[in-house]
Design a protein around this nucleic acid. Structure first.
Length: 552
RNA sequence: GCCCCAGUAGCUCAAAGGAUAGAGCGGCGGACUUCUAAUCCGUAGGUUGGGGGUUCGAGUCCCUCCUGGGGUGCCA
C-alpha cells in the first residue's frame, strides 16, 4: 500500500479512537487527504483534516489536530508527527525507512504499483482514425495520451484493453476508393480529375501505382468498392505500423462495419424508438438530445435512409457497456469535442448509467520548425505524418512531448528542440539520468567487480540530504499513478519524470561512488542507491513508452 | 447566438480547495583533469485577465464581464 494511503488510514483510525475516548465528538468523517507540502519545514506529508473538521466538531483546529495526533499509534515508517498552525498535521518519515526504499525498488519490477483497480475491466479507446490516410499528429497525441493512461491503469491493477474503433464503412471510404480509382485511371493516361471532396494526398497516387505495378491496366472495370477495400486494408496496415513505431499497440481493432453486420446499429435505433427518444421530421429520424441538455436535436438517420456517424457511435458505446467494461476512457481530439456528449446521451437513452465512461479531450498539435509554425492542411493532403516525424526526431521525443502538457493545452512540437542534445531538452535530461547510472555500473564492472558485490550493503550509510530527497521523490510514484488513474490526465507522469531527474542529477554531482575518497562501505551502499535509481528511471520511462538507453 | 478550452514570471507551462503560487527556457553571475558538463550551483523576475460571491482557507468552486482558440453538418 502506498505510504499516503497508510497515513490516511492511520489518521482515520486515530480520529475514531479519539471519538471513542471522548476527546472528539461524534461526526461523519470526511475523506482524509494527505498532501506533500512544498516547504520541507512542513514535513514530508501533511493533512489538513483538522481544519475540515473544525465545523463538524465545533472545536479549534489546533485542538482537533492535537487530539488526533495523541491517538496516532507509533508507526515504523514515521520519525515525527507534529501539529502546526492553523491546524496542519505534519508528518516526517523515518530516515531508516526512506533508506530502505532502495531495497524495495531493487526488489520489485513494478515499484509504485498497487491494487487500485482490483482487476476491473477497463478499456482505453484512442486514435480511431478513419483508414483513409496516414496517422496525423493530432491522432498521435490522442494515441500517446491513451497509451500512457493504459500503462498507468495497468500499473494500478486494472485489466486494460486498448481499442481502436475503425471506420471501415460509409462515405469516407467510398471517397477513398474513388480517389484511388481516379489516380489509377490518370496513371493509365485517362483524362479524369479529383473533386474537392476527394483525398488529395500523394499516398493515394502511391496506392494507385502499386495497383498498376501489380495488375497493369486490368482493373479498370473493377467497381469503386474494389479500390475502397484495397486502399482501406493497405492504409490500416500502414497505420498500425506507424503507431507501433511509437510503441502504441492495440488489443482490439473494432470495425464499424461489424455493427451493421450483426444488426447492432438497427437494434440500437429500435430501442431508442421504443423508448420514445426518436421522431421523424423532414423525412429524417431525429434524436431528442434536448432532453439531455443539448441545445438542439440531432439527426440519427438521414433522408437517404443511411444512419449518420452518430448512430453507430452510439451502438458502439452500447456494445462497450454490454461487454462489461467497468471503466471506459475515450480520447477525443478537438474536432470531436462537441460530439462526445451526444454519444453519451445515446447510451443514457438506451438505459445505461454513463458514469463508467470518461471522455478525455485534448487540444491540437502544432509543429514548430526553426521557430516558425509549419503550415498544414489535412484536406489537401499537405501535412506532416507520424512516420515522417519519427524519421526525423525518433519515437522518444514524440512520446514525451505529446504528454508534456495537460490535454487542455495545445502542444507546440518544436522539432529543433526534439533532437537537440542539450540541457534544454527534457527528453535527454531524463534519459541521461538512466545513462549516468548505467555508466557507474559499466565502470564498476570494467574494474572487475560484479553487480552483486553490493548486495549486503549497509543502506543506513545513505545519509546525504540529496540521496534522501531523491528517495522521497521516488515514493511519490504511487500517488502520481493514482492521480493519472483517477483524473485520466497523462501529463502527470511527464512532469514527475522530469522532477525525478531534477532530484537525481544534483545527487549524482555530489554523491560519488567510484572516487578514491569514498570508503568501501559507503561505495557499496551507493551502488545500491544508483542501482535503484537506474531501475526507477527504466520503470518511469517504460510507463511513458520511452526507451531507457545505456549510453547516449 | 450557443457549447467547450485557455488566460499564472519576458516566453512555454505546472500546481485533488490548503501553509510564503512553482519548474523549464530566456536574463545575470559562477563550476569541467568528471562514475559522460547531454550536468551542477547561485541570482533576479507575480495584483494568477477584470469585478463580485461561497469558505476557516480560492489560481482552483459559483456568477458576471473582457480577450484568444476550437466547435456549432442529414461529414467522421
Amino acid at each position: 500500500m502506498p505510504i499516503h494511503h497508510e497515513l490516511a488510514i492511520a489518521i482515520e483510525n486515530a480520529v475514531r479512537a479519539a471519538q471513542e475516548s471522548g476527546d472528539l465528538p461524534d461526526f461523519d468523517l470526511p475523506e482524509v487527504r494527505i498532501e506533500r507540502p512544498r516547504d520541507p519545514e512542513h514535513g514530508d506529508y501533511a493533512s489538513p483534516i483538522a481544519m475540515q473538521l473544525a465545523r463538524l466538531a465545533r472545536m479549534a483546529p489546533l485542538k482537533i489536530a492535537q487530539a488526533i495526533v495523541s491517538h496516532l499509534p507509533a508507526l515504523g515508517e514515521l520519525d515525527e508527527v507534529y501539529v502546526a498552525p492553523p491546524g496542519f498535521i505534519n508528518i516526517r518519515l523515518s530516515t531508516a525507512w526512506l533508506q530502505n526504499q532502495v531495497a524495495a525498488i531493487l526488489a520489485t519490477a513494478d515499484y509504485g504499483s498497487f491494487d487500485l483497480g482490483k482487476g476491473k475491466k477497463a478499456q482505453v479507446e484512442c486514435v480511431s482514425a478513419n483508414p483513409t490516410g496516414p496517422i496525423t499528429l493530432g491522432r498521435t497525441r490522442g494515441g500517446v495520451m491513451g497509451d500512457t493512461l493504459a500503462r498507468a491503469l495497468r500499473a494500478v491493477g486494472y485489466d486494460v484493453t486498448m481499442e481502436y474503433y475503425y471506420n471501415d464503412a460509409g462515405r469516407q471510404v467510398t471517397m477513398l476508393g474513388e480517389s484511388v480509382k481516379i489516380r489509377y485511371r490518370q496513371l493509365l493516361g485517362q483524362d479524369v480529375e479529383l473533386d474537392d471532396d476527394h483525398y488529395q494526398g500523394a499516398y493515394i497516387t502511391d496506392l494507385a501505382q502499386d495497383l498498376l505495378d501489380a495488375h497493369g491496366g486490368t482493373l479498370l472495370s473493377q467497381p469503386t468498392e474494389f479500390f475502397s477495400e484495397f486502399a482501406r486494408d493497405r492504409i490500416s496496415q500502414q497505420q498500425k505500423q506507424s503507431l507501433r513505431r511509437v510503441n502504441i499497440e492495440f488489443d482490439v481493432y473494432f470495425r464499424e462495419q461489424s455493427l451493421y453486420e450483426n444488426g447492432r446499429v438497427w437494434e440500437a435505433l429500435e430501442t431508442l424508438q421504443q423508448k420514445g427518444y426518436v421522431y421523424e421530421k423532414d423525412d429524417a429520424q431525429w434524436f431528442r438530445t434536448t432532453e439531455f441538455g443539448d441545445d438542439k436535436d440531432r439527426v440519427l438517420v438521414k433522408t437517404t435512409g443511411e444512419p449518420t456517424y452518430r448512430m453507430p457511435d452510439i451502438a458502439y458505446h452500447w456494445d462497450k457497456a454490454q461487454r462489461g467494461f467497468q471503466l471506459v476512457v475515450d480520447l477525443f481530439g478537438p474536432d470531436h469535442h462537441a460530439t462526445a456528449p451526444q454519444v453519451l446521451m445515446g447510451v443514457q437513452a438506451l438505459g445505461y448509467d454513463t458514469d463508467f465512461v470518461h471522455t478525455v479531450l485534448h487540444q491540437i498539435v502544432s509543429l514548430i520548425r526553426d521557430g516558425e509554425q509549419v503550415k498544414m492542411s489535412t484536406r489537401r493532403g499537405n501535412y506532416v505524418t507520424l512516420d515522417e516525424l519519427v524519421d526525423e526526431v525518433g519515437a522518444d521525443p514524440i512520446r514525451y512531448f505529446m504528454i508534456s502538457r495537460s490535454g487542455n493545452s495545445p502542444v507546440d512540437f518544436d522539432m529543433n528542440l526534439a533532437v537537440e542534445h542539450s540541457d534544454k531538452n527534457p527528453v535527454y535530461y531524463i534519459q541521461n539520468a538512466h545513462v549516468r547510472c548505467a555508466g557507474i555500473f559499466r565502470k564498476w564492472q570494467e574494474a572487475g567487480f560484479s553487480e552483486d558485490a553490493a548486495k549486503n550493503a549497509d543502506l543506513s550509510l545513505l545519509t546525504h540530504e540529496k540521496e534522501l530527497a531523491f528517495l522521497r521523490k521516488a515514493l511519490e510514484l504511487s500517488a502520481v499513478l493514482e492521480t493519472m488513474a483517477t483524473t485520466f490526465e497523462p501529463h502527470h507522469i511527464a512532469f514527475y519524470a522530469y522532477d525525478l531527474a531534477a532530484a537525481f542529477h544534483p545527487t549524482y554531482e555530489v554523491c560519488r561512488v567510484l572516487s578514491d575518497d569514498v570508503l568501501e562501505p559507503l561505495r557499496l551502499a551507493r551502488l545500491q542507491f544508483y542501482g535503484a535509481a537506474k531501475n526507477l528511471f527504466a520503470r518511469v520511462l517504460d510507463l511513458m513508452g520511452m526507451s531507457a538507453p545505456e549510453v547516449m
